[in-house]
């Protein structure tokens, strides 16, 4: 029975473990407001949610960086200003040094190839950890409709480039 009690304790600890990291990010993270971008939902398994892409992360990765990221499975680190809404500063394969007034978020190169309106072949970046907002069916629909420049995602970010989606706000 001791082993079973240990297993139960471990299972409860695992559930607690799931909620600790996001609370830490929310507690110590710096707030950034990102303009959302219209994107089609990609999944049928997620229940009521809104899929989010971010305007400032579109067409920012060169083909060379994209290839290196995808080949070696490396994340890309995108730096933004803390303005409301945030502005893109830089993108790199290395974690940037912390700077006052700037935040970074780790993401992945989308990998669909670039076809930007400005004619460049640059790729976009997805932030899977803040790419969906779970809510009720009605709210999800309203958010889907309001996505774009009118809707800002309130995101907490840490110096380690972790990010947590805290909520959605109208611009």
């Amino acid at each position: 029975m001791k082993k079973t009690f240990f297993a139960v304790g471990l299972q409860i600890a695992i559930m607690i473990l799931v909620i600790i990291p996001p609370y830490i990010v929310r507690a110590i993270g710096e707030t950034v407001y990102l303009e959302t971008e219209k994107m089609d939902p990609r999944s049928i398994f997620r229940g009521n949610f809104a899929i989010l892409g971010y305007k400032a992360a579109q067409g920012i990765v060169s083909q060379e960086m994209s290839e290196e990221s995808r080949k070696f499975g490396k994340p890309v680190y995108v730096q933004f200003t803390t303005d409301r809404p945030a502005k893109f500063v830089s993108v790199s394969l290395e974690k940037p040094e912390y700077e006052e007034g700037r935040v970074c978020i780790a993401g992945r190169v989308r990998g669909w190839g670039g076809w930007n309106p400005d004619g460049s072949n640059n790729e976009s970046v997805d932030f899977p950890q803040i790419a969906q907002f779970f809510t009720t069916a009605e709210e999800a629909k309203a958010i889907e409709d309001a996505r774009g420049e009118n809707l800002l995602a309130k995101v907490k970010t840490t110096k380690g480039c972790n990010a947590q989606l805290v909520g959605m706000e109208l611009k």
Binding site: F6, L10, Q11, P22, F45, A131, F134, Q164
Partner: peptide, 23 residues
């Protein structure tokens, strides 16, 4: 889901597996 984690949150099945193996 409370914290808007993705469904493909790989730590989820990994942690679940650890819990199941312990039991």
């Amino acid at each position: 889901q409370i914290f808007n984690y993705s469904l493909t949150y790989w730590q989820g099945p990994f942690l679940w597996m650890i819990g199941i193996l312990a039991m």
